[in-house]
């Protein structure tokens, strides 16, 4: 039997060195709500667990000049308890507050949710829609990439050996911007998204949508950016015709599979339905001047 080691580095450099030494069979532990499940189910057998929760950069929520930065290991509950963040980013919080039960959110982090690379991750579509970037540190140094570039397929990321996500940055949004996320699940709670939709839209002074971003979860191998769906909103007052076009474009963008959680047909249809509902929430928030 091989021994599973456990390390708790307190600096990024130490963490990177440990992970680089681990040669791919080291596992990063943040909230552990995916890693421990995978260990329980015998899906993974890491030689080394690197607990990154004692690295301060990964645990902070900071308001910067150009936006908000929060550490990749900040838990869902820590975000939910941060009043200013919640007020500034209701769309992000729509997603974060759906990551499992309160117990799970007591541990689960957005960093983990993103790096677990489930196409159904609830925090991802709203982050993409908001234009979030991730700061990554590794043996070759530091780089910033858009959140959508982290997951490359179910359970697969673009992170190289030794790389970890340190923090996420949400750039200040233009005035008149609203963001929202909703998912569809058979149960009201404790479920995995069958479809998730995150939308961020900005209204000009004339009430016309000047820019929009639509991201879809659980309808392809990774969260999708639905450009045609966003285009359906731009230049409109987000009226019925625009919403119809949005719904059709969102459905058209889906490349889902049939699985135990839903059929292709169902996902395609509900993606349109949800896009419409989410756009209306985002619109309301945009009119209220939020996000």
């Amino acid at each position: 039997m091989t021994e599973m080691k456990y390390e708790v580095p307190t600096s990024l450099d130490d963490a990177v060195a440990l992970l680089a030494d681990g040669k791919g069979n080291a596992k990063v532990l943040a909230g552990g709500t995916d890693v421990l499940v995978q260990m329980h189910m015998d899906l993974i057998e890491p030689d080394l667990i690197v607990d990154i929760k004692n690295i301060s950069e990964l645990r902070q929520i900071t308001k910067e000049k150009d936006g908000y930065r929060f550490g990749a290991a900040v838990s869902g509950v820590e975000l939910m308890d941060h009043e200013d963040f919640c007020q500034t980013w209701p769309g992000i919080m729509d997603g974060v507050s759906l990551i499992g039960s309160l117990q799970v959110k007591g541990r689960a982090s957005v960093g983990g949710n993103v790096c677990n690379a489930s196409p159904a991750a609830d925090s991802v579509p709203a982050m993409i829609a908001a234009g979030a970037t991730a700061t990554i540190v590794g043996p070759k140094g530091k780089r910033d990439i858009p959140v959508e570039e982290i997951a490359t397929g179910p359970g697969q990321t673009s992170l190289e050996d030794g790389e970890i996500v340190v923090s996420f940055f949400l750039p200040n949004s233009a005035p008149g911007t609203g963001g929202a996320y909703q998912r569809f699940t058979p149960r009201t709670e404790m479920d995995i998204a069958v479809v998730g939709v995150g939308i961020s839209l900005t209204l000009g002074d004339d009430g016309v949508c000047s820019s929009a971003k639509v991201a879809l979860g659980a309808v392809a191998a990774t969260a999708l950016i639905a450009e045609a769906a966003a285009a359906a909103l731009v230049g409109t007052k987000v009226d019925k015709a625009a919403l119809d076009n949005l719904a059709a474009a969102a459905s058209a963008a889906c490349k889902p599979i049939d699985d135990k959680r839903g059929t292709k047909e169902y996902r395609i249809k509900v993606a349109g339905v949800l896009a419409r509902r989410v756009a209306l929430i985002a619109l309301e928030r945009a009119l209220g001047g939020k996000e």
Partner: peptide, 20 residues
């Protein structure tokens, strides 16, 4: 369910060693 430093968690999703 237990609390860890006052936060509600599932103790099945916390490693024993993390309780230090």
């Amino acid at each position: 369910s237990v609390t860890l430093d006052g936060v509600l968690v599932c103790s099945c999703l916390v490693l024993g060693v993390e309780a230090e």
